[in-house]
Design a protein around this nucleic acid. Structure first.
Lengths: 125, 125, 125, 125
DNA sequence: GTGGTCTAGACCACC
DNA sequence: GTGGTCTAGACCACG
């Protein structure tokens, strides 16, 4: 279901969070769909249950999932996270553009690259 | 010369690196210009000299500066780092655009935001 | 009759208890009135009968209802719970006021907020 | 420095959080003052370091403290938490008032009790 | 020495 | 069986 890179320097729990955020934001996991149980996922990934627990807890705190004790973890309603996610993206983008300008890249070159990236693989709109 | 935020979560040596990268890429520090000595900078920032040493070492590894034993650290020639820096930026930008598309944001909205950010504060081109 | 929020963090049996306490204290359910049977309520709410059983047991322990074996569960006489309920409220209120004072909020501001809250929606007195 | 009730059903880490929130909000711990290290506090309270770690992490997330890796945890600036704390208090107070009205207590009785509580022990204003 | 992460294994509340 | 909490002990990054 999700992929973890054990060699990666970033903490495992953050990778788990990122993977699920991704699946949820993209709609692969639909609202109210059940996530793997803490224990089963831990087993599957050969990871300690505590680590999964922590990841799920963070996901809940950020509005991506909700927890029902004794039942499991489920994908939250779209409204709970979509706006936050977009704002995060805009902030990152803004910082990057600022850096690019700081590095002496011209506006026109930025525009051209953006168009390039926009045309790659997928296509919404 | 550079500013360190001790309350920031990111390690001090990374902040030192980022500050110098910035000054060098922007041209505030010109090629072959001398950087402050490890000890003097450590003193000025009330930081352990080891921390500065590590930052300078990383900067050298990434082609931003070169070291002359017994003399000090100096800004490298532009060719050594400018391309790498730009590639890093393009890669980040590409990833971000991909994420935005994954999150269901339309190309047109991305273009509009980009224009907005391009117009903020500074203006090259 | 009562509403359960399955996504809520607090356990279902506590929600059941709270809902019935509320109905009883407000007088919607009058003394000696019969509560729904464990099984019928469990069915209606799609909940495990054990959970309802536990809630009823707690309600009985706190003097809100009484149980007649073979007959069902009934709302207790007002004297059995009204005073306890009020005392609980006063204790909570007292703690909260103390906290507010501890947080440096002035008495006058507390009074003003109280008046505000008292005027909201319903109106006894 | 802080007191933990091991018999209490509420989790230890929440008690630790509550105790420090209290000390910070009341100003017993001043901004930029150092908190006990994770290990030393764990030792002192005969608690596992992980539990303290978790409490500190939550306190940081809620703006009460900030963490400097390799240095320790420190009380944050007042602006970071005072408003949040007050809002929490007003929300609780509002709920309680609503409950009291629901339980059939008259506005006048509520006012009288409030005055009583306001006059107890401490006195700001 | 300090916080950050992780493992292995345990017990509890809830359903 | 499920999540929630806790312990004991380990290793790493940072200063």
């Amino acid at each position: 279901m999700i992929y973890i890179d054990y060699k990666n320097r970033s903490p495992i729990y953050e990778q788990v969070i990122a993977e699920f955020e991704n699946l949820i934001v993209k709609g692969v996991l639909q609202p109210d769909e059940k996530l793997p149980s803490v224990r089963s996922l831990a087993m599957e990934l050969s990871i300690n249950p505590n680590t999964i627990q922590r990841a799920y807890h963070e996901l809940e705190r950020n509005g991506y999932i909700y927890t029902v004790k004794g039942k499991g973890n489920f994908v939250a309603a779209k409204e709970n996270f979509i706006q936050t996610k977009h704002e995060e993206l805009w902030n990152s983008l803004r910082g990057l553009i600022k850096d690019a300008k700081g590095a002496g890249i011209s506006k026109e070159e930025i525009r051209q690259r953006i168009e390039l990236f926009l045309r790659e693989d997928g296509s919404n709109d």
